[in-house]
Nucleic acid binder design. Sequence first.
DNA 1: TAATAGTTGACTATTTTGCTAGGTTAAGTA
DNA 2: TACTTAACCTAGCAAAATAGTCAACTATTA
Lengths: 157, 157
Amino acid sequence: MRLTTKGRYAVTAMLDLAFHSQIKPVTLTDIAARQTISLSYLEQLFARLRRAGMVKGVRGPGGGYKLCRKASDINISEVIAAVDEPLDSTKCGGEANCQKDKACLTHNLWMGLSEQIRNYLEGISLADLLEKNQVQEIAQRQHHDAQQAIEIYRHPE
Amino acid sequence: MRLTTKGRYAVTAMLDLAFHSQIKPVTLTDIAARQTISLSYLEQLFARLRRAGMVKGVRGPGGGYKLCRKASDINISEVIAAVDEPLDSTKCGGEANCQKDKACLTHNLWMGLSEQIRNYLEGISLADLLEKNQVQEIAQRQHHDAQQAIEIYRHPE
DNA sequence: TAATAGTTGACTATTTTGCTAGGTTAAGTA
DNA sequence: TACTTAACCTAGCAAAATAGTCAACTATTA
């Protein structure tokens, strides 16, 4: 899992869509204006989101985009995965010649971290974000949980 | 906090260094050969790591690089921070005109996530990684902890 | 002094990112 | 039917990031 501005753009746009599309479809032009993202770039992002089955386009006047599923059933992880290229799996793609090398330790760390981030983002839906504005507070609580996890990591049992 | 291949290269190299520099300094040529990273790219990365006070170069025959601190006192977070550019702080850099806009929710999410990842990586030192090879097992345990954090997030109290 | 190895800077190639410009197609509306 | 709207599609482009090369220079050690 990579974390770049591209994914952030996608999440921003999806949040805007989830917030505004409750009555009727939302045009990309509107999202572009509200979020200051270029229209054509949004089109590219939404082409991927559509192919991933997360949004549906409605053509013609009064058309636009709407969510395929409920906002509570779309998590941040899949939004990012939809727009990001599936990045090459770190040279040693499970090759046998890798285990002997110390380099693979790093590989494992990264896999573990990726997994951790993915899980974290999978647990947060678009609806979660729209419902509660006190993200700071939540981050604080999760910070605390993370510290506990680290304790367990360092001193098992 | 961004997650790119650049950071992964840096961590890989630092791990290699921590592992091999216990007796004498390690040349970048050696690291380049072992980790299949180009020498000059490593030079660029180590220039930053040196400026960040994490490694020290020893010139002349028998020279190379060594760690400034113990491997247990160098965490993954600072390695990545040293080589990554400090990324522009998301348009609304704490501006007042931002709070009104729904876009800032996304911003907050990202800040929270960055914080989470940073904390996670701060809790892992180079020594931690070298000591235990069972990263999978650890990832498993942390996965479990992450799930608990998500539960708390969704159902506070 | 000669060899080693860090240090520095300039330069190149590739990929990703973000965006522009131009179309085509489907669905409403006059 | 003609017109408008907006999705959908394609090609291309400039800036940045990524990854790497080459060459000169400096400090250290043998």
